[in-house]
Write a protein that binds this DNA or RNA. Structure first.
Lengths: 207, 207
DNA sequence: AATACATTTAAACAGTGTTCAATTATTGAA
DNA sequence: TTCAATAATTGAACACTGTTTAAATGTATT
C-alpha cells in the first residue's frame, strides 16, 4: 500500500501547514494567525487543516512547544560543574535566560497558558511543569552541595531553589515585557540578580 | 438643555455596559467576552457600544485598569516606616503581592499587554510603567537608607531595587500561573523570598 | 476496469468586531 | 402645544473567524 510513503506525505503536509503558520505568526503575531491565512499560503482549502490537526489550538501548541523545547534544550546542555555550585547554577540559568529571550513570543505564549485564546492547559503545561520540577531538583541538589561544601548557609534547598527559580522567572518576564532593553543593561541585571541571590545564600562571615 | 443630566445618563449607560461586561467576564473569562453578549444582557443592539466606547479593547482596558488600580492603591497605603527599611520594603511588597493575587485575571491581563487580543499598549501600560518607576524610586530610597544606616551592604540602590522588584514579580506570576497553591505555601514562599533577598542585601559579618 | 480507500473541497453554520444609513426619542424654542 | 434640531438607538450589512460535513476527487489494490 505504500503506507510508509503515505505517512511521509502526511508528515510533509503537516510540516507545510506548520511552516505556513510560522510565516503568518512571524509577520502578524499569534493573534494574526487564522486557518484561512494558513491554507491560502499553501493553496489548500480551509477544511484540510482538520485532517492533520485537531483544531487551531493544536497548531499554536505545536509552534509554542517548538520554541519552548529550544529553551529547555539549553538547560540540559549545562555541564555538571561538580566543583562550584555557584558557577553551575549561574551558567545554567544564564543559558536558560538567553534562550528564553531569543524566543520571547513562544515563552510568553507558554506562560500565558489558559489565557485569552492561546492554549489549552494540556500537554504543554504538563511538560513545562515536569521540566521545571526536574530543573528545580537539579538546582536543589546544587544548593545542597553548596551547603555541604560550606559555601552556602544552611537552609531548605528545595524551597530556596523555588525562590531562585521564581526570581529568574521574573527577570525573564520583565525583560520580555519591557522590551527594547539594551543588551548591556540586561547583562547587568542578570549579573546583579545572581550576585544578590548568591550573597543571600552564602554563609555569613565571609570577606 | 439639561446637559448635566445627559452626561449623567451617558455615564450611566457606560456603567451598564461595563457591568454587563464584568458579568460576562466573571462567567466566561475574558476570551468569552463579546459585544453581542454584553448588549444582549442590557437589552440593547450591538452598535450601541460604539457610541460609548471606541471599541471592544477599550472595554477590556477599562475592566483591567479597574483591577490593576486596586493593586496599585494597595501600594500607596504603605506607611513610611522610617526606622526599619526592611520592614517597610517587606510590608509594601507583601501588600502588593496579596492585592495582585486577589485579582489574578486582571494582573495577568495587564502583564500580557500587547499579547493575544487583550490590550493595546496605550494608557494602561504607560500607567503601569509610571507607577512601577514610582515604586522603584521608593524602593531604591529605602535601600539607600538601609545602606546609610549600615544595615545593607554598599551597592547601587536603583539596580538592587530593580532586581528585587523583578523577583517579586516572578513570585506573583508563578503563583498565579501555577494556581491552586495552598495559602500556607504561598506564605512560606513570600517569607523565604524576602529572607533570601534581605540576606543578600545585608552587610557581611553579622550574626 | 472496478472497487475500496484516502484526500481534498466547497459550502454552510454559528459566531465575531465594526460601520453606517435609517429610524426613533428627546430636547429647546416659537 | 407644535415644530425643528439634535441626540440616541437600531438593524442590517460587511468582512472576518473556527469548525463541520456531504460530496467530489484522487489514488492505490484487487
Amino acid at each position: 500500500m505504500g503506507k510508509r510513503r503515505q505517512l511521509l506525505k502526511q508528515e510533509e503536509i503537516k510540516a507545510n501547514i506548520l511552516n505556513a503558520a510560522r510565516k503568518v505568526v512571524a509577520e502578524e503575531g499569534f493573534q494574526g494567525l487564522s486557518i484561512r491565512k494558513i491554507t491560502k499560503l499553501i493553496d489548500y482549502s480551509p477544511g484540510i487543516v482538520y485532517h492533520y490537526f485537531q483544531n487551531k489550538e493544536a497548531i499554536i501548541e505545536a509552534l509554542v512547544t517548538e520554541g519552548y523545547e529550544r529553551i529547555l534544550a539549553s538547560i540540559s546542555s549545562v555541564s555538571r560543574n561538580e566543583g562550584q555550585p555557584e558557577a553551575e547554577i549561574k551558567e545554567g540559568f544564564t543559558k536558560y535566560i538567553r534562550a528564553a529571550l531569543a524566543a520571547p513570543e513562544e515563552y510568553k505564549a507558554f506562560l500565558l497558558n489558559e489565557n485569552p485564546s492561546v492554549l489549552t492547559k494540556t500537554s504543554l503545561l504538563a511538560q513545562g511543569i515536569m521540566e521545571r520540577s526536574r530543573t528545580l531538583r537539579a538546582l536543589g541538589e546544587a544548593i545542597r552541595r553548596g551547603i555541604e561544601m560550606g559555601r552556602f548557609a544552611p537552609c531548605d534547598p528545595e524551597l530556596m531553589a523555588q525562590v531562585i527559580w521564581t526570581s529568574v522567572f521574573g527577570l525573564i518576564i520583565k525583560i520580555i515585557i519591557e522590551g527594547n532593553i539594551p543588551q548591556e543593561q540586561i547583562d547587568r541585571l542578570i549579573e546583579q540578580e545572581f550576585k544578590l541571590l548568591f550573597y543571600g545564600l552564602m554563609v555569613r562571615n565571609r570577606h
